[in-house]
Amino acid sequence: MRVMVAGAGIGGLCLAQGLLRAGIDVRVYEREAAADSRYQGFRIGLNGAGLAALRECLPGRLHGLLEAVLGSIAGERRVVDQHLALLRQLPPADGGAAADRQVLRRLLLAGLADRVEFGRAVVGYTERADRTVVARFADGTSAVGELLVGADGVGSPVRRQLLPEAEVVTVAGNALLGRTPLTERSAALVPGFGTIVRGPGACMLLGRMQFRRPPRLAAAELAPEIDLPDIGDYLRWVVMLPGPLGPAPGAPVPGDWAGVRDRLLALIDGWHPDLVDVVRRSDVANSSPLTVRHARPVAHWGTRRVTLLGDAIHVMPPSGGQGANTALRDAALLCRSLTAAHRGEAGLPAAVEAYERRMLDYGFTAVRESLEQLPQFTPAP
């Protein structure tokens, strides 16, 4: 069996690791030119299900390195105003871990050098009568396998062909994603799991990314063949806005973070100096506007030689902290289903259908729950 995966994000790579571990021929095709050709976003929270799925697919030899480069997300959650006066104390959070997306992606690429092809954008597919599927690439070439998995994100060309009626909704307003090097001063803003700042015209979410061990040093000791990014601890923050930022029409322009930052500083003028300092010292290369989207539920489409995973099928707002976790859960579940087919315990179509029906159920439950939580992070217009 050959499985083709469109997209080398966290979900697609987690699936590839699991399939390789099961002895299944897998190939991953990624449209980006290289693993580090653009910044990948940053701190995500991994819950128990996400961590379990990740460990299930990742080779045992890398579990120690994974644990070393995670961080803690536990303790108190609080809501404060723009002057840091306490408005509300939320129930404390416990369990799970923080992961840097770039570090995790590089870890998931370990051992896949001959399985991942960069600069290969899947733009469509053709299903053939011999029960194979042909993946077509932007450069005019193609590849053949028994299954194509669309793990190619919210703009998935695979989904657009498979489910042309599927809707992805852009949430009104704007959001900004920022990363600021962690200092003693900024760390005090997040004494536990996270802090929500509710100010006039904006809502700011703050969370720490403190690695248990520096990623590059941990890899040098525990898995010298893996070159992890040299990233220090940082504060991850998101600012939710009810509309466009500043006098310029439309949403902020990616790549112009310095200009976006200056407009945001004008908006939060008068906020507590520590909050202003976080925005002022933000990492220009690793901060950006963020478009918040969600998928509308779809019914099962009838199993084919093509399926979907992660944001390609059930993209959701970050408000529930479930996007990456659900993609990892997809990867582990699909890996289990395909492994059963590989062993002759189930036919391939039946195995894929079992995955799809379960994935659609919990995936769109996560979308609904994330939408239900979104208002608490959205400022009034």
Rank of each mutant, 00 (worst) to 15 (best):
5 V>W: 05
11 G>T: 08
14 C>A: 15
16 A>K: 02
18 G>F: 02
19 L>G: 01
20 L>P: 00
23 G>Q: 07
36 D>W: 06
43 R>C: 12
53 A>P: 06
59 P>L: 14
62 L>P: 03
62 L>H: 14
64 G>D: 09
70 L>G: 04
73 I>V: 15
78 R>W: 00
79 V>K: 05
89 Q>K: 13
91 P>I: 07
96 G>T: 07
101 R>D: 06
104 L>E: 06
109 L>T: 01
111 G>L: 07
115 R>H: 14
122 V>E: 02
124 G>E: 04
125 Y>A: 01
133 V>P: 01
133 V>R: 02
134 V>K: 02
136 R>C: 06
142 S>N: 07
146 E>I: 00
146 E>C: 01
156 S>Q: 05
161 Q>S: 03
173 G>R: 03
178 G>Y: 09
182 L>K: 10
185 R>V: 12
191 P>K: 11
197 V>M: 08
198 R>N: 11
201 G>M: 11
225 E>M: 12
228 L>F: 05
242 P>T: 08
245 L>R: 10
247 P>T: 15
250 G>K: 13
256 D>K: 13
259 G>T: 12
267 L>K: 14
268 I>M: 10
268 I>P: 02
270 G>A: 13
276 V>E: 13
283 D>F: 05
297 P>Q: 08
306 V>N: 00
306 V>K: 04
315 V>F: 04
319 S>E: 02
320 G>C: 11
322 Q>I: 04
325 N>K: 01
325 N>P: 00
331 A>F: 08
332 A>M: 12
337 S>T: 11
338 L>I: 08
339 T>D: 15
341 A>R: 06
344 G>E: 09
350 A>N: 07
350 A>H: 06
356 E>K: 12
356 E>S: 10
362 Y>E: 13
378 T>I: 00
